[in-house]
């Protein structure tokens, strides 16, 4: 059983475009201080940023938690309060997007988010219902 040696928790607010990316920036800075190799750190940062943007664009808000475990595994959990992803299979298809005009103006909504998050993560698990979506990502250092 591995233990968390570094734990952080953040709140994400719906449509808070002005702050979009601040959590991922803090996660990147935090992990860089404990010597995570740059290639792994970049994958974590990309996955975190895309997931954070997804929460702001699509969800009613939620929380992001980061844990570094003593066995070298890093876990990010993105848990939102709904409305859930109506068709997960479509959402996982590159190019499929339901993003708003505002999201597109920010440079997102290309339909590459979830496929890209899965690509850069070592572990990818997503559970969704009308009550909310929980995305759990794992990264192995080394």
């Amino acid at each position: 059983m591995s233990n968390s040696i570094l734990h952080k928790e953040y709140t994400v607010i719906r449509f808070d475009y002005a702050r979009a990316g601040k959590v991922s920036s803090d996660i990147k800075k935090t992990l860089s201080t404990i010597g995570i190799p740059s290639a792994v750190l970049r994958n974590i940062s990309v996955a975190s940023y895309e997931s954070e943007i997804n929460m702001i664009i699509h969800a009613y808000g939620g929380t992001i938690t980061m844990d570094v475990f003593d066995d070298g595994r890093i876990q990010l959990i993105f848990k939102d309060d709904g409305p859930g992803i109506p068709d997960l299979e479509k959402a996982m298809t590159p190019g499929y997007s339901t993003a708003s005009e505002e999201a597109r103006n920010m440079g997102f909504g290309a339909g590459m988010g979830l496929p890209n998050i899965k690509r850069v993560s070592d572990e990818f698990d997503i559970k969704t219902s009308e009550e909310g979506t929980t995305l759990t990502l794992g990264f192995v250092v080394g």
Binding site: A20, G21, S24, S25, R42, S45, Y49, M106, G107
Partner: peptide, 24 residues
């Protein structure tokens, strides 16, 4: 090789800078 890559964009907002930051 993001460190050797130049990003060219017409999107002049904060997210372009965030993207660069995440990618090194």
């Amino acid at each position: 090789s993001p460190e050797d890559t130049l990003l060219i964009s017409g999107l002049a907002n904060v997210q372009t800078l965030r993207t660069a930051e995440m990618l090194d």
